[in-house]
Write a protein that binds this DNA or RNA. Structure first.
Lengths: 152, 152
DNA sequence: TATTGTTATACTCTATAACTATA
DNA sequence: TATAGTTATAGAGTATAACAATA
């Protein structure tokens, strides 16, 4: 019942790059499902919650389209539905009357705060991390994101 | 131009848990967009590509619904569209005639192999990782996934 | 002319509910 | 009765193309 190495705590086998990406894909999917469920608890779709979470400052329709990585024509519908529920408001920008700023209302702020609060429970998975590991993970995630964004 | 500490390579500040989750969310979003774009290059939606990638063995409609975390009624449409293009085939299971196995055709295998091949370029971001960091990252991703799945 | 936002259109994914055919 | 799969339906996100208002 023993392997070739005799020592006690089994040395973990370093995963291959492909295995790491597989793990990352699985963790990402789990995160996305979690976020979708949390948003649904507040009566929001994931896109609506994502859009609301961007509105710390007012943003134009065009800026929202860029940050959400979708065509500008989609933003009209998403903002329509949020506005109909009073979570968001369109405002004309005086200096350029083509532009419409989207502003988060108080109700919208409340909704997204509830989402953020519920997501905090998710953070617990990483709460016990040592400082050294935090630095490694942050570096990896930034590198991964940069590499992916570059391809797009 | 110097800070309080004199030594040369600046010690990175360990990110907070919330900052780590923010980074993870951003990297996940980038990964998802990348996968969607790669699938689109092969004329597939991300759901179609995900479903095809599960078909190393034949799976029933019900099993596909579980693994894709959506209602069984959705699978009918997704498989319909894949089958219309010859990427997938429905087969009756003789021992239980209620069940339909979904089988990947040769064309379907070709398509998903092209997706996997194109995704390999994405892996490059993690290719230069040291063994110790791989082990840390794998452990983290598994813990994160387990924590998220548990909540669902 | 170029840009911002909207509309019209068509397609895919999504959940719910009701249905069928099997078990 | 319970399960596997389908259909019908309605709603939301998606891209494309054409359009009005403004720059």
């Amino acid at each position: 019942m023993s392997h070739s190495s005799a020592a006690a705590p089994a040395t973990p086998v370093p995963p291959t790059t492909a295995e790491l990406m597989e793990l990352f894909a699985l963790a990402s999917t789990a995160y996305f499902h979690d976020f979708t469920a949390v948003a649904a608890n507040q009566g929001l779709t994931s896109m609506q919650a994502k859009l609301l979470s961007l509105l710390r400052q007012p943003l134009s329709m065009r800026e929202l389209a860029e940050r959400l990585a979708c065509d500008a024509s989609n933003i009209t519908g998403i903002v329509d539905r949020l506005e109909a529920r009073g979570l968001v408001r369109r405002e004309m920008r005086p200096d350029d009357r083509r532009v419409k700023n989207v502003v988060c209302t108080e109700a919208g702020t409340d909704a997204i705060l509830r989402v953020r609060d519920e997501m905090r429970a998710t953070h617990q998975a990483l709460a016990g991390l040592a400082d050294a590991d935090r630095i490694v993970l942050a570096d990896l995630l930034q590198r991964l994101r940069a590499s992916l964004d570059q391809r797009a």
